[in-house]
Write a protein that binds this DNA or RNA. Structure first.
Lengths: 217, 217
DNA sequence: TGCTGAATCAAACGTACGTTTAAAAAATAC
DNA sequence: GTATTTTTTAAACGTACGTTTGATTCAGCA
């Protein structure tokens, strides 16, 4: 195989295995075999198993978050001094995921599944991941949601954003299985369509009437 | 230690380890040590590692699904010949999870996390789990949602139910981490409150206006 | 052509894995 | 109180793990 492509092939195989088996379930022996390289390649190029998966996440997540911030900024410009439209906020949060999943025009379902995995990873891995990549973006979206929200207390905004993120992550983790029976098989590759539906769902959920927190039943 | 309690202690330890490390990441050596029994106990009482985790899921999920079906039936009775109120459908789907998590009056957050893990487990495990425990319940709720839905095409109903389930599973997987910064620490143990908020969120999302599927932007 | 640094390789490091075995111990039945 | 079954135990089964090592290969350049 051509030299210089080893790192890329390792990252590609890592995405596959990580999506299917998670961090602890991924074997470096299987991974390097699938990548067509030697077992020692991972430690040579990345330092360790954990560093490889971390680098994979960095490469994937950072462009998404950059894209998110740009879309949010564009929506801010569009809105002027008024609050941003809720639809634009969640479009800025969801759609970059679909854009990142695109590879040669076709969606990379493995990447979606990997993204959905992060949430249930063991605490050590998760904590490092989240503090490394997400604090700035999350705070930016939360403060914009608070400006947009129709009189919701901040803690309620956080709850609803939490549900929105949960729905996204759950949908990503599940998407690769949607073809089997649940929905039309044709739509499996229409990640954009899924994310648009999800945005509409989440926006409506976010606008749910607020009962003041002490409602019964 | 008292005899006869070994199985129970194994199941309890299994829940802990499975929630934290997943199926492939759980070590039978650590698990049996935590349960205060011998390494061979798992294979003696359950047959294999996989069978132990399967049995754990069965014990936890079956009562939830029974509870779900009973609540759905009660809502059906209440509604008479009219469609069931959307809030009652999702209450029947969400609340039994919180009830199952209750142990001696306090919520068992580990169980929630375990439940949230199932969705991103490897395909072999997931497939077996889902086909074993969920087909009947899912179809029952879907058909009831179709009766209740305001003119939504069935495929759209499935999409929105999928998002609702995703939000639930994501929220369960994340809940144990909510105390740190995102929301009020006091609410961490208020699983019921979380599920009620989630139900309201999901019901509103389910009622999102339907654009006919071909809408732009 | 010979040198240099990066990249790859097979092999071995020590450790941990899930499972099996056969003997010891405890509980139950007669 | 002995016989029988159920449960627990320590030890070993073979396999796989992530990482390290030192030799080998290969490109680029003098």
């Amino acid at each position: 195989m051509e030299p210089g492509q080893t790192k890329e092939r390792l990252l590609q195989a890592a995405e596959q295995f990580y999506a299917e088996h998670g961090f602890e379930g991924t074997s470096m022996r299987e991974l390097t075999a699938a990548a067509g390289t030697n077992l020692a390649a991972v430690n040579y190029h990345f330092g360790s198993k954990k560093a490889l998966l971390m680098e994979l996440c960095r490469i994937r997540i950072e462009p998404i978050n950059q894209d998110r911030m740009e879309m949010l900024e564009a929506a801010r410009q569009k809105a002027g001094s008024a609050p941003i439209l809720l639809e634009d906020i969640f479009a800025a949060f969801f759609f970059p995921v679909g854009r990142q999943a695109l590879q040669d025009g076709k969606p990379n379902l493995t990447f979606l599944r990997m993204a959905g995995r992060l949430i249930s990873e063991n605490d050590e891995f998760y904590e490092e991941m989240v503090t490394a990549f997400f604090p700035v973006v999350v705070e930016a979206f939360l403060s914009e949601l608070e400006r947009t929200a129709p009189g919701l207390p901040p803690v309620e905004v956080r709850w609803r954003f939490h549900f929105a993120v949960s729905a996204l992550v759950g949908a990503l983790a599940q998407h690769h299985r949607m073809g089997s029976s649940k929905c039309s098989e044709l739509e499996l590759n229409d990640v954009e369509g899924m994310l648009r539906r999800l945005r509409d769902f989440v926006c409506a959920g976010f606008r749910a009437p607020y009962e003041g927190g002490e409602a019964g039943q």
